[in-house]
Amino acid sequence: MNLAVVLYTSDLRLHDHPPLRAALSSCDQVVPLFVRDHGIEAAGFAAPNRTAFLADCLADLDAGLRERGGRLVVRSGDVVAEVCALVQEADADEVHMAAGVSAYAHAREERLRAALEAEGRRLYVHDMVVTAVAPGAVTPAGSDHFAVFTPYFRRWTELPPRAVAAAPRAVRVPEGLGSELVPARATVAGTSPGLAAGGEGEARRLLTRWVRNGLAAYEDTHDDLAGDATSRLSPHLHFGTLSPVEA
Rank of each mutant, 00 (worst) to 15 (best):
V80D: 07
V83S: 02
V164W: 04
S76A: 14
S102N: 08
G199H: 02
L20W: 00
S76I: 10
A4R: 05
I40L: 14
P32F: 07
G70E: 03
S76D: 13
A166K: 11
V80H: 03
M128Q: 15
R21K: 12
A203P: 06
F239I: 06
W210P: 01
E158W: 08
V173R: 00
A98G: 02
T150E: 15
V74R: 05
H236R: 07
P161L: 15
A134N: 09
N2Y: 01
A43M: 12
V182Y: 01
P140A: 08
Y124M: 15
R111A: 11
S143A: 15
L20N: 00
E246V: 11
M128K: 11
A22Q: 03
R122L: 13
V125I: 09
R122M: 12
D16E: 02
M128A: 15
A165Q: 13
A43G: 04
R204T: 04
L237W: 00
Y104L: 14
P19A: 05
R172E: 09
P174R: 10
L86H: 03
C84N: 05
T157F: 12
A52T: 02
A184R: 12
V130E: 10
T9I: 13
D60H: 06
A186Y: 02
R162W: 05
L72C: 09
G199A: 05
E110V: 14
Y124G: 11
A46F: 02
A92V: 09
I40Q: 09
H17C: 10
R154Y: 13
A167N: 07
G199D: 04
D144G: 12
S243L: 07
V164A: 08
P135N: 11
L116P: 02
V5T: 07
S231P: 09
V80W: 03
G100Y: 04
D223N: 09
A107T: 15
P32L: 02
R50I: 10
H17D: 03
V148P: 07
R66G: 03
E246R: 08
S179K: 05
R169T: 15
H96M: 10
A163S: 13
V133Y: 07
D28N: 07
F146L: 08
R154V: 15
P235Y: 00
C84T: 11
A141M: 12
A216Y: 08
R232C: 13
G44C: 05
L206A: 04
A167F: 01
A59Y: 04
E41I: 12
A141R: 14
A107L: 14
Y104F: 13
M1K: 08
